[in-house]
C-alpha cells in the first residue's frame, strides 16, 4: 500500500514537473534557435516571451477537431494519446535523485527500452489512420527507422548494465557514484556507448538530423499532416517529452545521474539532463537532415557493429579487469 502511495505521489509530481519543463523547453528552444539565427524569438507574450508555450496550448485547445472524411476514425483518434502516454511512461523509472524515483524497478533498463520501443506504434498508427499519402510515407519511414535503431539502442544500453551488473537504474547510478562515471572510466567503453545511445535515442525521438518521418520540407508535416488542435499538441508534446526523458536516461546511465559534489542530487540530475537536452537542440538547429537510406546505412553499417563490439568488450572488461 505504501509503495502504491509513494509511486502515485511521485508519479503525479513527475508528470506535472515534466509537463512544465516541456513547456519551458519549448520556450527555451525557440529563444535558443532565434539566437542562433540572429533573431529575437518570442518577446511579446509575457516577459521575454516566457508565456509563449502556454498561449500555444490555449490556442490549440480551442481549435476545431477535424477527422478527415476517409480516415480510420478509431486509429486516428487513438494515436495521439498513445504517443503521449508512451513518452511519459518512461519517466517512471528515472532516478531524479537518490530517493525521487516513481518506480525503482529491478528491470528498469528493460522497462525503459520496452516502453521506448512502444513509441513507434502511435506514429505508425497515425501514418496509417490519417489516410493521407504524406502521412503514410512518414509512418513508413518512422517504422523502418525505429525498428533499425532499436538494435544499437539496446546494445548501447547493455554496456552500463554489464559494467555495473544491474538493470536497476538506481543501482547503476549508485555504482557510478561509488566508482566512476561510466564516461570517465572505462571511458573507451563508456564514451562510444554513450554516443551510440544518444544517437539512437535521437532517432527514436525523431529529432533532426533523424527527423525524416515528419520532414516538413518533404512530407508537408509527415505523420501529423492531418492532425488538428489538441491532438497535434499531444504529438508535439510527446516529441519533446521523449527528448527530455531520453536526455535524463542518458544522464543516468552514463553521466552518473544525481552524483556530483556540493549541490543536491536533484540539481545535478536536472543540470545534466538540461545540458544534454540543450546539446540536442544545438544539433537540431545546426544540422541538415539525412535521407532515409543513409540513415539505415549509418545504423546497420556503423552503429550496430560498434555496439556488438562494445558489448563483447564490456563483458571481457568485467570478467578480466573489473
Amino acid at each position: 500500500m505504501n509503495e502504491l502511495i509513494h509511486g502515485g505521489l511521485y508519479g503525479g509530481m513527475i508528470v506535472g514537473v515534466l509537463m512544465t519543463t516541456t513547456a519551458m523547453a519549448l520556450w527555451f528552444e525557440r529563444k535558443f534557435a532565434a539566437r542562433m539565427q540572429s533573431r529575437l524569438g518570442p518577446t511579446m507574450v509575457g516577459p521575454s516571451g516566457l508565456l509563449q508555450p502556454f498561449a500555444d496550448v490555449v490556442k490549440l485547445l480551442q481549435k476545431e477537431d477535424i477527422v478527415p472524411f476517409q480516415a480510420d476514425r478509431v486509429l486516428f483518434n487513438l494515436a495521439p494519446p498513445l504517443g503521449a502516454i508512451a513518452a511519459i511512461s518512461v519517466a517512471a523509472v528515472i532516478p531524479f535523485s537518490a530517493d525521487i524515483i516513481a518506480a525503482d524497478l529491478d528491470v528498469g533498463v528493460l522497462y525503459l527500452l520496452a516502453i521506448g520501443a512502444l513509441g513507434v506504434l502511435p506514429v505508425f498508427i497515425a501514418g496509417w489512420g490519417s489516410n493521407n499519402k504524406f502521412a503514410l510515407l512518414g509512418g513508413m519511414r518512422a517504422l523502418a527507422q525505429s525498428v533499425s535503431y532499436e538494435v544499437p539502442l539496446v546494445l548501447a544500453a547493455l554496456v552500463p548494465v554489464i559494467l555495473t551488473g544491474s538493470m536497476k537504474l538506481s543501482a547503476i547510478v549508485e555504482f557510478q557514484a561509488t566508482h566512476h562515471w561510466l564516461v570517465v572510466w572505462p571511458f573507451f567503453l563508456g564514451v562510444p556507448a554513450f554516443i551510440i545511445f544518444m544517437l539512437a535515442m535521437l532517432a527514436e525521438a525523431n529529432r533532426i538530423p533523424f527527423d525524416i518521418p515528419e520532414a516538413e520540407s518533404e512530407l508537408v508535416a509527415g505523420i501529423t499532416t492531418e492532425y488538428t488542435g489538441i491532438k497535434f499538441a499531444l504529438f508535439y508534446m510527446a516529441e519533446y517529452v521523449h527528448t527530455l526523458v531520453a536526455s535524463a536516461v542518458g544522464a543516468a546511465l552514463f553521466l552518473g545521474g544525481w552524483d556530483g559534489p556540493f549541490a543536491p542530487g536533484l540539481g545535478w540530475m536536472v543540470a545534466k539532463t538540461l545540458a544534454l537536452f540543450g546539446f540536442v537542440y544545438w544539433l537540431r538547429w545546426t544540422l541538415l537532415r539525412f535521407r532515409s537510406d543513409q540513415l539505415m546505412a549509418l545504423c546497420w553499417r556503423y552503429l550496430v557493429p560498434a555496439g556488438v563490439v562494445l558489448v563483447a568488450a564490456s563483458a571481457v572488461w568485467v570478467v578480466w579487469v573489473g
Binding site: 539565427q37 533573431r39 524569438g41 511579446m44 516571451g49 508535416a221 499532416t225 492531418e226 492532425y227
Partner: peptide
C-alpha cells in the same frame, strides 16, 4: 520570417500544413 523583422516575436511561425494553421 527572417532576422530583420522576425515575426516569431509575436509567436507566429509557419506551419506547412493547413490543419495546424490559424
Amino acid at each position: 520570417m527572417a532576422s530583420r523583422v522576425d515575426i516569431d516575436r509575436m509567436g507566429s511561425f509557419v506551419r506547412p500544413t493547413p490543419r495546424q494553421a490559424d
